[in-house]
Write a protein that binds this DNA or RNA. Sequence first.
DNA 1: GGCGTTTGCGTTAGCGCTACCGATGCGCTC
DNA 2: GAGCGCATCGGTAGCGCTAACGCAAACGCC
Lengths: 343, 343
Amino acid sequence: MTTILDVARRAGVSPMTVSRVVNGEKNVRPSTRAAVMSAVKALNYAPNPAARTLAGAEAARVGLLYSNPSAAYLSEFLVGALDEASRTSVQIMLEKSEATSGAAERAAVRKLVASGAAGVILPPPLCESEDVLAELKQAGLPTVAVASGRFNAEISCVRINDYAAAYEMTNYLLDLGHRRIGSILGHPNQTGSAERERGFTAALADAGVRNDPGLTVQGYFSYRSGLDAAETLLTRRVLPTAIFASNDDMAAAVVSVAHRKGLDVPGDLSVVGFDDTSIATTIWPELTTIRQPITAMAEIALDLILREIRSSRRNGNTPMKPVDHLVTYSLVKRSSAAAPKTP
Amino acid sequence: MTTILDVARRAGVSPMTVSRVVNGEKNVRPSTRAAVMSAVKALNYAPNPAARTLAGAEAARVGLLYSNPSAAYLSEFLVGALDEASRTSVQIMLEKSEATSGAAERAAVRKLVASGAAGVILPPPLCESEDVLAELKQAGLPTVAVASGRFNAEISCVRINDYAAAYEMTNYLLDLGHRRIGSILGHPNQTGSAERERGFTAALADAGVRNDPGLTVQGYFSYRSGLDAAETLLTRRVLPTAIFASNDDMAAAVVSVAHRKGLDVPGDLSVVGFDDTSIATTIWPELTTIRQPITAMAEIALDLILREIRSSRRNGNTPMKPVDHLVTYSLVKRSSAAAPKTP
DNA sequence: GGCGTTTGCGTTAGCGCTACCGATGCGCTC
DNA sequence: GAGCGCATCGGTAGCGCTAACGCAAACGCC
């Protein structure tokens, strides 16, 4: 069991300085900070949460409010959050808000507040809920949204650039030689959907490819909606050679429908998804998709919220200026997309 | 916030005595005990857990070693574990062991030990790894296995009765009127697979239905293996009217293959899964399957490991007698199974 | 160049609780 | 009645960490 003293000795400073570094306080020379950091890493030091709370550093408890997320997403997210939490020894309180009614969402927030949350992290899709946001604002709690499509200047957020990612993915399809590309939109009440659509259409426009409105279908992020959308797209007289689905579940549905219709993927039809959730690699062929670094995003979100909590504690509840933290996505090329056989 | 000192003063004793009373130690005169108790009640005193663990009582960090689990499973599991952890104020340390090599698994365990784990929880499929178990035994760490198919008297475990669940599921199919039921086995190196198979064959035998060996195919729990198995089963001259898959991923694969072959599910073919992971409800039709109370199992596992840690600390590293904790599963009837059209 | 003011770090003093050791009193033996 | 064992309690000393202050050195400002 390594203590703060071990770290201090190894770094050649006082325990207090180590404490400062670990808690991200300023007024520490960068060189000292680096020395402490490396000692921390070398000794695999993790602060003792009991001692911390006992010493009066208010037990930072942060709420994590989720609702009906993709399980794969949630688990990755939790892993990241937990990891970071154990490093910084904050306590994470989970709260589920299944109900879609505004009242239920507000109640969930209040419950979190009642159990002493000092800040709240909002994974999608809750980060877009007016009710949740309003309640949180009223309670004056620092909040960090994760993976909302847009930054709205009211609330810090950690996200990827959905627009750019969709643009890049579409370009990839274009480069492969596809010219008739169908698209399935995401749920209309999530800003990410619109961003992805913008990226898609922009890429087509920039390439000088006509965006056939008949090849765009509304989806709702669910497998079921993907099934319906695919049915629509694949019964057209002249078929698209590729389909851009706004998430993996819908892309998987497209693959399923294509197979049922005797279409080979990617031989007759390329299909690409978005998010790289577990379904992308469970089905066959595995999906070409956009991967978000979910674990890292969770860690960043937790770090951000802690910073906000501390800052608001110091300056008497004056919230910090919201931060828009963009992280890098990546285009994962697997086997569901290839050059069209006959363009 | 009332402290132990307040209680001591009110009861006219030393803090130490209060501590003894509160912790139920003996060697306290009944009269003093009563006095302390009444003071405790009067002041509504509750010991500060942080101080308690800090003072060396029961600081508990428990490791959670996982490897390549179904994401849905992991997330539910984490939710349960976290909830219980925040209640009992233990710290959970996550450790991933992706590699399948024994050396890597042993290294993961050692890392956990090095960072001070007092016990380890092993969700599937790691709970069956000889290497992990051996390393853990060598380190003398209390361990709890989750969802291993069998109880092995060496290590405590929390699980459902796979045999009974498979038996019940098969009976359900039988009651629906199915007589030619195909089955896809689980991964041969997991004891749960064998249990499920036993339950399946027992149900057939008890119903006096012949178990056609040609209708049983080896699978490996992956979607891909389900695809292959389904291909085998659905190209037989005389088709089964139902397929019992040993997990949801394989069942989903069966549905996909059936659709590709123009078979209606459940009209022409009933398909049932096992585990009730997220894929069961994302695909269409939704799968009839066996649900495990994963969240509850995680809570129980954490509770168990705590008990073991305490016990081994008290009796000088003598481990507790392993416990076999069975929890109740449930058969979730959805739309992938129905009576056969023509038996 | 004197005098605030900030920056960077160490020192001290606990947070509330429990291990550990020692002190006391009482019954008992021989 | 001296010696012994046991039950019952109190005092001391931390557990690992941080708030609050202290104290140098560096930095402005006229």
